[in-house]
Amino acid sequence: MSNSITEATATPYLTLRDLRVSYGSVEALHSINITVNQGEIVTILGANGAGKTTTLMSISGLLRPTHGEILFQGEALHTLPPHVIVQRGITQSPEGRRVFGTMSVLENLQLGAYTRKNADEAAKNLQWIFELFPRLEERASQLAGTLSGGEQQMLAIGRALMGCPRVLLLDEPSLGLAPILVQFIFDTIKAINKTGMTVILVEQNARAALKLADRGYVLEVGKVVLEDTAPNLLANPEVQNAYLGGQRD
């Protein structure tokens, strides 16, 4: 409070502070701290079960922390219901895509704009998403459940973008995709970020993620064990051994 000017300029965009999250009596996140600045791509790396999905689901409000807080532009997020968090401008493309399989591609995208009442804006946004993913426009009337895995991934990202987010959460967008498609998805994420959108990227594909990201966090069994700029993490021997498959590249 004493130095309000520096505090205002230094207020981080999105902060997870001392966050603890449990499933029943089992704690999955043990006091993690993560900070994201506006316009950044931040990647969260970690082995299976490290707590990456748990972290994103907590930000989206589907899981409630038992301790700690999540602040977005200085305001508490962890007490808000999920739909209000979407209204505040945080959307997610979840792990496993979770598209609405028995609905058409177009309906899926329109549902992404469920909280956006402005029809013109939504139409413009849809046009932009069709430019990013022309495949979705070709398949607009097809049932989402009949899309290929890669197309479903595009749809999941497109659906999250339809909410006009300020922060986009991506949970393993490259999972199970052919290498050429992985490159396309990562290029697209870069393009989305260039529009000023902040991105939090959870990935198993650590090398590609670190090449794309500004900064990264490494989670191990529910704790942040490393945080650094992406180039530093790429060069870090521990990271190379554990997540980049040795000294290659």
Partner: peptide, 14 residues
């Protein structure tokens, strides 16, 4: 009806 969690993620007040 299809996926309550995904519905929450698009901003539907379930």
């Amino acid at each position: 009806a299809i996926d309550q969690g995904a519905a929450k993620l698009v901003g539907i007040d379930v």
